[in-house]
Design a protein around this nucleic acid. Structure first.
Lengths: 352, 352
DNA sequence: GCGAGCGCGTTATACGTAAAACTATGACCG
DNA sequence: CGGTCATAGTTTTACGTATAACGCGCTCGC
C-alpha cells in the first residue's frame, strides 16, 4: 500500500542533518524550486536567454534569504582558476609596500580579483613555499623583490609574473619607478646649491632599486660637473646610517664632501644623528638627502629633503599589468615619475 | 578477436592531453603502480598497518619525482577544513603588526597551519568582506581591532575567534599586552625624576589599547601623588602630535605640566618638533615619553623614552590560543609583560 | 579443514560548483 | 501537418582529494 505522498514536493533533500551549515547551491535550488544548474547559471550572470527573468529573480531572492555564498574551494576545483594574485612584498614593515598593496587591491577589487599577501621573510633563503603559504591556487604573481630560487619556482609553475622595481627580464610585465630621474633631481638640487663633492651612503642591499640609485647618482653628478668622492655602504637602518655617516664625517681632506646623498630616509636619519654627535651642523655645514619620503622624514630635525615615490600607482599599475597578461593582452612596460621634496636638510654649499 | 594486450599495465590513464599540467594523485598512483586511494593514505601519513613499507616508499618516490603537490581546493572541498587562520591587522603599515605576524606564522607553521593576512582598510566602514578577501575557507580568526559589524560577521560564521589587545568579551580567547603596567612604569620613572604635573597626548583612536593607556596613566599618577593636568587628543601621526603638543606648550599657568606622556612614539616625535619650534628644551625643560618603541624612537633627537611591546610574543600567543580552541582545549587568557626603555627624552623635573 | 582474523590493498563515494549535453514544450513557417 | 527553432529549463559530468566500505589471499587456532 504505497502512500504516494508527495507533499514534500518530491525534490530530493540531500542535506538535513546539519541545520546551521552554510547553504549550498543545492539548498538555494530547493528553496527556489529549480535545479542547482539553474542556480549556477543565474548567479554566474550568464543566464540571459536560458532562464526566464522571473525564475532568475526567484533564484536571487532565495540566495539572498539563505545568505548563500558559493564555496570557493568547489569553484576553484571546478574552474582551475581563482582570480587571485599573490603580492610578494619584501617584508611586512614598510610604508611603501602598504601603499603598493592598497593600490593593487583597489584595481583588483574593481575587476573581481583578489589579492593575497606574501611577506617574504627577512632571511630570504629559508623562505617557506609561497604557494603553500598562499593557501589557494593562484592566477598570477606580482613580485617586488625575490630570491632567485623563489623566482625560479614561480616561473616553473608557469604563472603570469609581474615584477615591480626590478630589472628581471624573464617576466611578463614590469612596473618601475623612475629612480634615475629622482636621483637626477636630487643631483640638480645639490648642484644648484653649489655642491660639487658628494658622498654616497649606499644601502647594503642587493636589489635593483639601489643599484639604480647609485648609478643614476654617479652619472648625473658627473654630467653636472660634480663627483661622488666617497661611497660608504650601510645596512638599511638608522643605526647603519649612523655608523656609515660617522665614518664619512670623521675624515676630512682636500676633497671633503659637502653633501651626503643617502639611498633611503632611514640612512639619512642616521646621518643626521652622526652629524649632531660630531658637531656638524645640517644643512649649514653639510647637506643631507634621503629617499622614499618615509614618515620619519618629517619627524627628524631638520626635516629631510627626499624623493617621494608613487607607491600606490606602483601597486595599481602592477595589478593592471597582471590583468592584461591574464586576459591575453600585451602589457607595456610602465615607468612612473617621482617627485623631489625640498626640505630643511639641504642648503647652500658652505663657503670654505 | 580480443587482443588482451596489457603491456600498458592496464591502468586507465585519464590524463594525457596536457603535458605540463600539475600532476594529481592519480598520476602519482599510476607512476607507483597503486591506486589513488593508496597515494592519499601514504602521503596523508596514516598508512601504518594498511600499506606495506615498500609500497609506501614507492609512492613517496613517485610523488617526489613528479613534483606532486596536493590540490588545496580539492582537499578543502573534501575536508571542509583548511588549517588556515585569518590574521586581521589594522593596516599594513606598522612595525608592531609586522612582528605580530611573524610570531604567529612561526607558531602556525610548526603546527602545519597557514596564516593569511587581512589588512583592514583605513576607513573600516567600507571594509570588503574578510572572508571573500581571504580567498579560502578559514578555520579561525585572530583579530587585533575590528569594526563591530565585521566582528559580528565573524561570529555569525561560527568561527573560532581570538582577540588581540581588546576587551571584547564575546570571543574564544584573548591575548593582551600589559599596557597598564607599561604606563605604571612610565609614571614611576617620571615620579622618580620629580615630575608631578603631567600632560597626556592621547591618540584620537577608539580602541581598547588607548583607553587602557589613558586609564592606567591617570590611575598610576594619582596613586603616586601626581596628576594629569591636561589631556589633549590628537590624530595618530607626527603632525597630530605636533599640533596637540603645540597647544599644550603654548599655554602656561600655575599647573604647567613638566612632562608630556604620549600614547605613541609618533605623537611623541611630533611633541619633540613642537618643543623645538617653541624653544622648549627636552628634557631640560620638558620631559616627553612615547609608547611602542618604533624605529622612529631612536631616529629623533633626543631619543625617546618609550615602552617596548612584545609584539612577536603577541602573535605567537594568539596563534597558540587559536590552536587550543580549534583542538578543543581551553585556552587561558594571556597577558604579556612590557619593558620601559629609558632614553634621552626624559630628565629631572626643572627647578622652578 | 574451516572460519576468523590480518595484512595490504582496491573500489566507490561525497564534497559544491560550472558547464556541456540533453529534453520538453510551443511557436512559427512553408 | 511536419519540421525547425527558440525558450526554459534539467540531467549529468568532471574537477582532485580523503576515507568508508569492501575484497582477497594467507595464516592460525581448534
Amino acid at each position: 500500500m504505497p502512500a504516494q505522498h508527495t507533499e514534500d514536493g518530491g525534490t530530493p533533500r540531500r542535506h538535513q542533518a546539519a541545520r546551521s551549515a552554510r547553504p549550498t547551491g543545492h539548498d538555494v535550488a530547493d528553496a527556489a524550486g529549480v535545479s542547482q544548474a539553474t542556480v549556477s547559471l543565474v548567479l554566474g550572470g550568464k543566464w540571459e536567454g536560458r532562464v526566464s527573468p522571473r525564475t532568475a529573480e526567484a533564484v536571487r531572492a532565495a540566495a539572498r534569504t539563505l545568505g548563500y555564498r558559493p564555496n570557493l574551494a568547489a569553484r576553484t576545483l571546478r574552474l582551475g582558476r581563482t582570480r587571485t594574485a599573490l603580492l610578494v612584498v619584501p617584508a611586512l614593515t614598510g610604508e611603501f609596500f602598504a601603499a603598493v598593496h592598497q593600490g593593487a587591491v583597489e584595481v583588483a577589487t574593481s575587476h573581481d580579483f583578489g589579492i593575497v599577501l606574501y611577506p617574504s621573510p627577512e632571511g630570504i633563503e629559508k623562505a617557506p613555499d609561497p604557494f603553500a603559504s598562499a593557501r589557494t591556487a593562484l592566477d598570477g604573481v606580482i613580485a617586488s623583490s625575490m630570491a632567485p630560487e623563489a623566482l625560479a619556482t614561480l616561473r616553473g609553475e608557469g604563472l603570469p609574473l609581474v615584477m615591480l622595481d626590478s630589472d628581471e627580464g624573464d617576466c611578463d610585465a614590469t612596473v618601475n619607478v623612475d629612480i634615475a630621474n629622482g636621483m637626477r633631481q636630487v643631483t640638480a638640487h645639490l648642484l644648484a646649491l653649489g655642491h660639487r663633492n658628494v658622498a654616497h651612503l649606499a644601502a647594503d642591499v642587493d636589489s635593483w632599486t639601489f643599484t639604480a640609485r647609485a648609478d643614476a647618482l654617479a652619472g648625473a653628478l658627473r654630467t653636472g660637473g660634480g663627483a661622488v668622492v666617497r661611497t660608504e655602504r650601510a645596512p638599511l637602518s638608522v643605526a647603519g646610517g649612523l655608523d656609515a655617516a660617522t665614518r664619512v664625517l670623521a675624515q676630512s681632506d682636500a676633497d671633503t664632501p659637502t653633501a651626503l646623498v643617502c639611498d633611503d630616509d632611514l640612512l639619512a636619519a642616521g646621518a643626521l644623528k652622526a652629524a649632531r654627535r660630531l658637531g656638524v651642523r645640517v644643512p649649514e655645514e653639510m647637506s643631507v638627502t634621503g629617499f622614499d619620503d618615509l614618515t620619519l622624514a618629517t619627524a627628524v630635525e631638520p626635516e629631510l629633503t627626499t624623493v617621494a615615490l608613487p607607491a600606490q600607482q606602483v601597486g595599481a599599475a602592477g595589478m593592471e599589468a597582471l590583468l592584461a597578461v591574464v586576459e591575453g593582452r600585451a602589457p607595456r612596460p610602465v615607468r612612473l615619475p617621482v617627485r623631489l621634496l625640498e626640505r630643511g636638510s639641504t642648503g647652500p654649499r658652505p663657503t670654505l
